[in-house]
Design a protein around this nucleic acid. Structure first.
Lengths: 166, 166
DNA sequence: CCGGGATTGTTTAGCTGCTAAACTGTTATA
DNA sequence: TATAACAGTTTAGCAGCTAAACAATCCCGG
């Protein structure tokens, strides 16, 4: 600050170039970038998702951990972390939460005293079933401006990218 | 804790259900969810993006702010925040950074002493041009497993979602 | 012309969701 | 049996946001 603009950087900044009026949205290079649009859509989706799963008091991360645990009972935390693409250290808090809420149990494995196998409880399975239904309804609603074909295309493309880049 | 699993929740957790072996990846309900795949792809993209723009020492957020400023010289911080979909308070640090690096200037506006119009410097325009080229090359490389048609489809779908949901 | 309300930029505190590094206990292997 | 590898955990820290409060300034109705 202090320096109140004059010969500072060439092209005289006269504060009259584009501002003042409305600044219409949607005419940026950003809007031509897949990455930027992906980010914006992801943010929208997360907000919606949070709201949708608020009833079951589940965040996206906790939901995904519960999902894999229910569908792979007995999975180790290391394998779960690998599957979710996060660090083992980051998973601890998530499993702590699931265990506190009696949705998942850490069970000692006879053969190997290092690993804690994760098993869903009945409540865990029920909560998951309910939450999954909610999520499906949520996706239906969120993507309702997109045709079923486009939804299929979107999913297929995203999966293709993951398969290659992951 | 303390309660070491026994009759805790019904179905006896015997730690032999699915673990132990390999736990193949890709057979979860999660992988059928657009939202989850979107998240994973977004994370991959962000990692790649960070690396690509490390040369110019720009994060995604700073790059996007610079982009809009260059393409809308004289824009106010409030309008910029609106355009980027973030809070004004969150933008302050970004603009601070851009100004410290002499890529953007805050310029007092004669008519309204509240607003600080943002103007790119020559260095800002140059850096942006270089970074934008880098980003384009990055997107080419990142999405090279996806056909040009699929890329167009992806972009179109994402933009459609934003147009409606935003 | 003046007083209430809106707006701009800003600071501060706090949240979420991660990682990286270090550590313990345990198992596998050379 | 020493050494490496692995599982889970704790701690510290970062990025990238939001929400709330605030001062300065502008706008507008009466």
């Amino acid at each position: 600050m202090t320096r109140t603009a004059s010969n500072a950087a060439t092209a005289e900044p006269d504060a009259s170039s584009a501002a003042a009026s409305g600044v219409e949205v949607g005419d940026n290079s950003l809007d031509q970038l897949i990455g930027y649009n992906l980010k914006r859509v992801y943010i929208l989706l997360q907000m919606d998702f949070r709201e949708a799963l608020a009833a079951d008091d589940l965040s996206a991360r906790v939901f995904s951990a519960l999902s894999v645990t229910v569908e792979h009972p007995g999975i180790s935390q290391s394998d779960l972390a690998r599957q979710l693409g996060i660090e083992r250290s980051g998973l601890v808090a998530i499993v702590d939460l699931l265990e506190q809420r009696h949705l998942v149990q850490r069970v000692a494995v006879p053969g190997d005293r290092r690993v804690q196998a994760l098993h869903p409880t009945d409540a865990g399975r029920e909560t998951y079933a309910r939450a999954l239904a909610t999520v499906h309804r949520h996706e239906e609603a969120f993507f309702d401006m997109v045709t079923p074909q486009e939804r299929d295309q979107l999913l297929a493309i995203l999966r293709k990218i993951r398969r290659t880049a992951e």
